[in-house]
Design a protein around this nucleic acid. Structure first.
Length: 300
DNA sequence: CACTCGTGGAG
DNA sequence: TCTCCAAGAGT
């Protein structure tokens, strides 16, 4: 059970303040927030935004929507085109899963994005967050949408903690569900508004409590913003990791628009054994296609 | 549950 | 410079 403060902020007031703030300060101009944006556009934005800042997502999203305006358009393209168009958004397996998801939409959903969380969860690359977000933002279904921003805002306002624990647990989902407005439309607005508050004001480093609409209601702020004291949050190693080498290999294959000989890849890192291991893992993931034992390309 | 999987901007 | 971390998912 989360250690809730002695008195929780009155939820209706919290809802009103956060939603009011969103109407004033939210990035309502983002293309996937336009009322006429298709469900496919919303779906695409959610997958692209997994672990990638929106500022980098928007240009790629516009290009993808211009090129593949429907699931069928993407499904008809070679998966390698999706991987190349993914560019430097990071975690390129997301591009592959997006292509697979588009294929499933064509094969089993009449070329449409499914609307229920259950159907969405069955799609590759879609987890609890994305399923809830697409249901809510594209179809107006008031699911419990919990991402890193929501987790942080709730940890602070309701639990009085600087950060949530490293892993999302059941108690947190219950807390998020209980903090939602009962009314459908109000709940949908709350979902996007609280997420936006976490993205713009209640940020991880250097939260701008002076600009926060609920600073006077926030358990963490009222308590004097005590430092995080939970279990250590693991950092992300980078230099010398397989991720770095995989990234370098894929960068070369993206930029070459034809098959690349092994000689053009093997110096992607100092350790040749590591390079070959990473190349094999990219092939196993379906991100790279071996034409022979010595020529590689993005999958056709 | 703990770990892996890219990339780049901010402080 | 270096650390942190971002609309997470899959194993």
């Amino acid at each position: 059970m989360p250690s809730a403060p002695v008195s929780l902020p009155p939820l209706p007031l919290l809802h009103e303040r956060v939603s009011g703030w969103y109407a004033e300060a939210g990035r309502t101009h983002l293309p996937w927030r336009e009322p006429d944006c298709s469900a496919w556009g919303v779906f695409l934005s959610e997958v692209m935004s997994q672990q990638t800042p929106l500022s980098r997502v928007e240009p790629a999203w516009r290009e993808w929507m211009r090129r593949w305006p429907t699931p069928a358009d993407l499904a008809a393209a070679p998966p390698g085109d999706a991987v190349r168009a993914w560019g430097r958004l990071g975690y390129p397996r997301r591009a592959l899963r997006l292509h697979e998801a588009a294929t499933v939409m064509v094969q089993r959903h009449g070329g449409e994005v499914p609307s229920t969380p259950e159907e969405l969860l069955a799609l590759p690359g879609v987890g609890a967050y994305t399923a809830a977000a697409v249901s809510c933002f594209a179809f107006g279904i008031p699911e419990v949408v919990v991402d890193t921003n929501v987790r942080r805002v709730l940890a602070r306002t309701l639990e009085g903690k600087a950060f949530p624990n490293p892993t999302l647990n059941r108690a947190e989902m219950v807390l998020a569900a209980e903090s939602m407005p009962a009314d459908r439309d109000t709940a949908n607005t709350w979902n996007v508004a609280v997420m936006e508050l976490g993205a713009l004001v209640c940020v991880a480093r250097g939260p701008r409590c002076d600009d926060c609409p609920v600073a006077d209601l926030c358990a963490w702020n009222v308590a004097g913003r005590p430092a995080y004291d939970g279990p250590p949050r693991r950092g992300q190693a980078w230099h010398g990791t397989d991720r770095q080498v995989r990234g370098e290999l894929l960068r070369r294959l993206r930029e070459a628009h034809h098959a690349v000989p092994l000689s053009g890849l093997e110096d992607s890192a100092d350790d040749r054994v590591q390079v070959m291991r990473c190349l094999d893992s990219l092939v196993a993931d379906g991100l790279v296609e071996p034409l022979s034992r010595s020529r590689y390309r993005l999958p056709a």
